[in-house]
Amino acid sequence: MATLTMVQAIARTLAEEMSRDERVVVLGEDVGKRGGVFLATEGLLERFGPDRVIDTPLSEAAIIGAAVGMAAHGLRPVAEIQFADYIFPGFDQLATQAAKLRYRSGGQFTAPMVVRMPSGGGVRGGHHHSQSPEAHFAHTAGLKVVVVSTPYDAKGLLKAAIRDDDPVVFLEPKRLYRATREEVPDDDYVVPIGKAAVRREGTDLTIIGYGTSMPEVLKAGDELAKAGISAEILDLRSLVPWDIEAVMRSVAKTGRVVLVADAPRLSGVLGEIAATIAEELFDQMLAPPVRVAGFDTPYPYAQDKLYLPTVTRILNAAKQVLEY
């Protein structure tokens, strides 16, 4: 058992998976000698060589597209996009090729690949180093979408993603890469895609969050507890598929729900979950679902910390559903 940051857990997991299965290869910009700009691929080139740790030209389309071909031909590529904000030149490859290959070939060809990307704000990166573009991926049939928030989950879900037979977009909140350390078991465990985690049990309201915003969500839970309010906190972890059972079980129990994420509010994943809750549990709800999301502006530079859902904003939303 080692105490690791999230980015260390990712680097170790990549090494473990590459040792376990020689079909697993890593490709991306600066993933070789540099070990990735966040060091998520540190030490892999030295250990596995340039055939399996491939520094690519500076082209996201080439990275994702090549990963599709490698996967179709029998490898298990793990592509790194340096920042999630840079996915757009590669988005066509993700949406047109990776997501639809199994479907359009009637299951003859598949693209078992992982696209890892550091996402989210809170690092004063301005709008091209801070976005959370998960809604684009969640809206593209054929992709699975995972957003981790802890070192333990990063390991277990990355293993699940690499072993999955479909393309998985694996979002890593860069703000959390080194925010905390956690004991990460050495054994070969997998956290299944599609399962939420209950981070805190409670009875008065449910707060559903994921990714970058989880520290604020947990802090809000602590504040509420101090005020004698029992919040149940779910970390979704997977957005496609999302854990409808865990969500409905919790909201059916509490009757009140606040949904929190840093991605823009308009057409976001939270809206989909809120709408499903309303469709299924309308008669058991004590208040309408309330979202706390990123604002629908491009991600700002100067107001970096204000853009992200703050504890105050989450507590206000909690108040709104509790006092409805």
Binding site: G65, A66, A67, G69, M70, A72, Q93, F109
Partner: peptide
């Protein structure tokens, strides 16, 4: 490899398969 309508989108996968 399953053809796609989107012009040129199959070319990066061809490179990837060749790399494999």
């Amino acid at each position: 490899f399953a053809a796609a309508s989107t012009v040129a989108s199959h070319i990066p996968p061809a490179t990837g398969a060749a790399l494999s």
